[in-house]
Amino acid sequence: MSRTALQDERGFNQVFKPVGSTPLRMRRRGDWFVTQIERLGARRVLEIGSGTGDTAAYLATHSKAEIVAVDMSERFVAEARARHAATNLRYELFDVLGDTPLAFGHFDMVCGNGILHHLIRRLPDVLRALHGLTSSNGGLAFIEPNFLNPYCALIFGTKFGRRWAKLEPDEMAFTPGELRSVLPAAGWRAVEVITRDFLLPGLPEMFIKPSIAIEPVLEASAATRWLAQSHFITAQA
């Protein structure tokens, strides 16, 4: 795991220093979100759990959509505003369940990178709230950790891993089946959960090229694909 650069007010949620494989990993995820914006023809995008704003800034730079990025941490929002600025980008302090749902209007796409697993005990309500914020032709795009991945299983499934990663008490990774059941129950349709990505965060540079070289082989086989680190989730409103 990469070294921590910033934590929220409670000391749980961390932003990691961009070392080793982390910058490449974030660019690849940013490109995936941009692809979803283009696929949906989204003009307004809401990112929840935006942290210090790197993903939102990437989306604003690589698309023409208006990006509204929200987080419930004052520290993270202040840091995001200090780091990034663009005419099609804004950062707001907002709790998707605790604040007025339509404070910023409707969106063509709602998204987030590793945020739903922080909300697992409130997930049905969160997904219903997001559905209410999304236009009828819109959709969602999320990337979430796969509990079946050995690295994730260590972090989320053991006392040592949870202490080491400083996880919140209720934070938990997902199996694909859990996601495929909870999203339709919240009103989302055409749910697709694709498990992929074998590039670990903070991997030393000497291991990046070998990991990228073997990744397509691991993702192409059903025998190994389920071990990938992340679920790439899309659905229609």
Results as ranks from 00 to 15, higher is better:
L148N: 13
P101L: 06
V45D: 01
S136Y: 15
S211D: 00
A213V: 00
P150F: 06
T175I: 10
V191W: 09
D197M: 07
A222G: 09
R25C: 11
L127Q: 13
A185R: 07
T87C: 03
S135P: 11
G11L: 11
I208W: 00
F142C: 07
T61A: 13
A82W: 08
P23K: 09
M206W: 13
A220Y: 00
P150H: 01
E9R: 12
I214F: 01
A222D: 12
F198P: 02
R39N: 09
L97K: 03
S21W: 03
A57P: 01
V34F: 02
G112D: 12
E205V: 01
G157R: 04
V45Q: 02
W226S: 09
F160P: 05
S135Y: 12
D170R: 12
A153E: 14
E9F: 08
A57V: 04
F232N: 01
M26Y: 05
I155H: 11
N137W: 09
S2K: 14
I208Q: 00
F76R: 11
D197S: 10
V45Y: 04
Q36H: 15
H62T: 02
L97D: 06
S135R: 14
L24M: 05
Q7C: 15
H84V: 03
A78V: 14
R180M: 13
R122T: 15
S50R: 02
R44E: 09
I115F: 12
D108M: 03
L179Q: 12
I155S: 14
G157D: 06
L127P: 10
A173T: 15
S21H: 07
N146M: 12
A56E: 00
P204C: 04
G132Y: 05
V193P: 04
L89H: 05
F160I: 13
T4Q: 13
R28F: 06
T4Y: 12
T35S: 15
D54N: 08
F107H: 10
P176I: 10
R83E: 03
A228D: 05
R128T: 12
I67L: 04
P23T: 02
K64H: 02
F33W: 08
R27H: 03
R83S: 06
R27M: 02
G41K: 02
A78R: 15
G20W: 10
Q236G: 05
W32F: 08
G187Y: 13
A220W: 00
L199I: 00
Q236D: 08
T134R: 03
L183W: 07
A60W: 03
P18V: 06
E219H: 00
N13D: 15
D71S: 11
F76Q: 11
F33Y: 14
D54K: 10
A60H: 05
G112Y: 07
R189N: 09
N13L: 15
F198C: 05
G105N: 06
D95Y: 14
E219V: 02
W226H: 13
